[in-house]
Amino acid sequence: MNRSTNRRLLATFAAATTLAFAAPAFAQEGAAAAAPDATVGKVTGDSLTIGAAGVYIPDYEGSNDYRFAPAPIVLAKWHGFGLQILGNRASVDLIPDRGQWNFEAGPIGVINFNRSDPDAIKDIRVARLRERGNAFELGGYLGVSKTGVITSPYDTLSLSVSYRHDLTRAHDSGIWQPSISYVTPLSRKLAVGINAQAQHVERGYANAYFNIGPIQSAASGLPQYSTDGGWKSYTVAAFVTHSLTGDLLHGFKIVAGGGYTRLLGGFARSPIVTVAGTPNQWLGAVGVAYTF
């Protein structure tokens, strides 16, 4: 397996990695909030991967009720530049690939659906809290990755940090997210990986999704509560992708992943979590994709 082939193989795996982290974001703060922002693996040469998946997600951030939702997968590579559309998250890598060391930078856009549809929330107390509009979060990321670091000349370790801000005043605040990912191909048909990340949110985010004022308390029956911004959560996850047609570089493949998110500090102590939900959040995604 040469290095160019390996980069293309790892890029197909990025769909499984990012999609599985996007899963909780459909019910929470947006796909980028639980997705690695730097591309996991690089493509040498042009390629296009499209697909769809079903994701298993909490009803809202902090819920102990779950539901299924659909998610699109689009990965494109052109002259070294990259595009990802995964669930409700889109990002672009504006720095062309160079070799063993690669740097990434570009914009991120996320549509945040957290608590924007009370009918999708099973817990009647949380459903009675003030409805939140969809938030459009726009920002950017910086990242670096190296191929050939631990198990073989073909594995990849990636580090990234991103920031995005709500432009629609649904929560009118910003989100910082550091992330580290490791992925390795086991063959031309199989690749696996792991990821860890954390989120630091500003005060507006806490006020929109975790605080409960007097009017909301009276409507829901949940006690009043207030917390500030800070480190909101951490996430760990694992992923796998397997070719259905003999080669991850072309044809159909299955992508799957699962992970665990833990809410922290004042966010974990909010009544929507301690009374109506849980700080322990689980997620999963299974889908099919095709690489041209």
Rank of each mutant, 00 (worst) to 15 (best):
A33M: 15
R132M: 10
F26D: 08
K42S: 15
M1D: 02
A196N: 01
A219D: 13
G140P: 07
G30R: 05
G45A: 06
T12W: 01
R188E: 10
P185Q: 00
A256L: 08
W78G: 12
N211M: 03
A33L: 15
F210K: 02
G51K: 06
A20Y: 08
K146Y: 15
A34H: 15
D172M: 12
R128Y: 11
A38K: 10
L249Q: 10
P271H: 03
Y205R: 13
N211S: 07
D46M: 06
T261I: 06
V201N: 02
K253Q: 09
R203H: 11
T156N: 13
Y209P: 04
A268M: 05
S181C: 05
G82S: 10
V183N: 08
S233N: 15
T49Y: 06
G54C: 10
S243L: 00
A22T: 15
A14Y: 11
D228W: 00
V192R: 01
T241N: 15
D123W: 00
V149M: 11
L167S: 14
D228E: 11
F136P: 03
G174V: 09
G41K: 02
P178S: 06
V236N: 08
Q281T: 02
G229A: 10
V144Q: 04
K146S: 07
G287A: 01
A268P: 03
L159M: 08
A120I: 11
T261N: 05
A31H: 13
R67I: 08
G287K: 02
A53H: 10
Y209R: 06
H242E: 14
H200K: 12
F68G: 14
S162E: 14
S270F: 07
L19P: 04
G140C: 06
S217P: 01
G87R: 03
E202M: 13
F239A: 11
N211P: 01
T227D: 04
S270Y: 05
Y163S: 14
A206Q: 05
G287I: 09
Y209G: 03
Q281A: 00
Y225D: 08
I194E: 01
V40W: 05
T151P: 04
G45T: 05
A32E: 04
L249N: 13
A238C: 12
S162H: 12
S152C: 06
S47Y: 13
F292I: 01
T235R: 09
K189G: 01
S162N: 10
R164A: 12
D247E: 10
Y66H: 04
T5A: 14
R269W: 12
P153T: 09
R269D: 12
N102S: 03
W231T: 11
A27N: 13
A237S: 15
Y163H: 14
L264K: 00
A25M: 12
P214N: 05
T156S: 13
V110Q: 11
K189S: 10
S91R: 15
A219I: 09
H171E: 15
G229T: 08
A52V: 14
A256D: 06
F210M: 03
I108Q: 11
D117E: 11
G51F: 05
A69Q: 07
G106H: 00
Y60A: 02
A219Q: 13
I108P: 07
Y225L: 12
A25V: 15
P178K: 04
L264E: 04
V55T: 12
G45Y: 09
Y163N: 10
L48D: 03
T278Y: 04
A285V: 04
P178F: 00
G257V: 08
F68R: 01
N2C: 08
N207V: 09
P70G: 10
